[in-house]
């Protein structure tokens, strides 16, 4: 067994670099190398980029079967590489792909997995992970057994983006694909961008408008904020009843019940009908002109002001800070 840390580099997602940044620290503490696993088709640049972001070297599988991400061929390669190279730790970003890929690989390897972690530390030469459980109402420390690699996925935006250093260099080794196309049970038929139509029930971020938006056009800044955050657009019953926005967006007792990590209520007073649908959101932000609006009693953060000023300012700020 080595002390090396392997990181899967997801394509087109900055979570790969955040994870690489986190892994850098782990590798340094273990005294091992940080190895980027780059899989895809025509991904030589990605390997170079990974080294720039802190990897010591890269293992690159470049194959037509790896074009768009697919679980089975990716897992087969990573499993084989892990078995061949015996890394101490194998990390991925806790993206949709990373969550399933890590689980699949962990099962194939028979090793332990700590998903969706917010903190990784090294104790006694091994990984200790911290992660929220019970939808954020408890924090668990995860201890690993003897099997290696210890696997974990890192929650998005928990670790900062490392700074790219194009002067860094490292060895890039090509590896072959494991599965041929005929061995792969799935085929990606296409991807439709879903910006602005994120489903409410599955959204982790929701931005909602109520009576305060004043009309159908008033939803434009609310939508813009939702888009900037990659969140879904919600509405109170009044806004729906007034015909400003379709019923599909209604959050509340008689609309959708939602439980996002972040709920931003714009111009919503917080009638019980609405509260019933969103009060279990992890963090509620209320933006309302009326400082006495009941919504403030349920919010963690409140801004008393005109949503038509505050919401665009927020959109601008988020875009600047998140680079979206």
């Amino acid at each position: 067994m080595s002390n090396n840390v392997f990181v899967w580099i997801e394509q087109n997602d900055p979570i790969a670099w955040e994870t690489l940044g986190a892994a850098r620290g782990v590798a340094d503490q273990l005294g091992g190398q940080l190895v980027a696993l780059v899989l895809g088709e025509n991904v030589a640049n990605l390997a170079t980029e990974a080294i720039g972001y802190g990897a010591d070297r890269a293992l690159v599988a470049d194959d037509a079967t790896l074009g768009p991400y697919r679980l089975e061929p990716y897992a087969a390669i990573i499993t084989q590489l892990a078995q061949a190279h015996q890394p101490a730790v194998l990390l991925m970003g806790a993206s949709s792909a990373g969550l399933e890929l890590s689980a699949y690989v962990a099962a194939k390897l028979g090793v332990g997995l700590a998903p969706d972690c917010t903190e990784l530390t090294v104790e006694d030469g091994g990984l200790v992970a911290t992660r929220p459980v019970l939808v954020g109402n408890l924090v668990a420390k995860i201890a690993f057994g003897d099997a290696r690699p210890q696997m974990a996925t890192i929650r998005r935006r928990v670790y900062p983006m490392p700074t790219a250093d194009s002067s860094r260099s490292g060895e890039t080794t090509g590896v072959a694909a494991v599965l041929s196309e005929s061995d792969i049970p799935t085929k990606v038929e296409g991807v439709a961008a879903s910006s602005g139509q994120v489903s409410l029930t599955d959204a982790t971020i929701i931005v909602s408008g109520g009576r305060g938006v004043g009309g159908p056009e008033g939803f434009a800044p609310v939508q813009a904020l939702a888009d900037a955050l990659g969140g879904a657009l919600g509405a109170s019953r009044v806004a729906v009843d007034s015909g400003w926005i379709p019923y599909a967006h209604q959050v509340g007792q008689t609309g959708k019940t939602v439980q996002p990590d972040l709920y931003i209520a714009c111009g919503i007073s917080g009638a019980i009908q609405h509260l019933a649908g969103m009060k279990t959101s992890k963090v509620i932000v209320a933006i309302n002109k009326d400082p006495d609006a009941p919504i403030f009693k349920f919010a963690r953060y409140g801004i008393v002001g005109d949503l038509f000023e505050v919401v665009p300012a927020l959109t601008k700020e988020f875009k600047a800070r998140l680079g979206t």
């Binding site: 087109n12 997602d13 768009p68 993206s95 949709s96 792909a97 049970p185 799935t186 085929k187 990606v188 038929e189 296409g190 991807v191 439709a192 961008a193 879903s194 910006s195 489903s199 599955d202 990659g230």
Partner: peptide, 14 residues
Amino acid sequence: ERLMEAGRETVSSK
């Protein structure tokens, strides 16, 4: 249709 960060991915499978 899978709900992924990048959008809705259509996948066929056995």
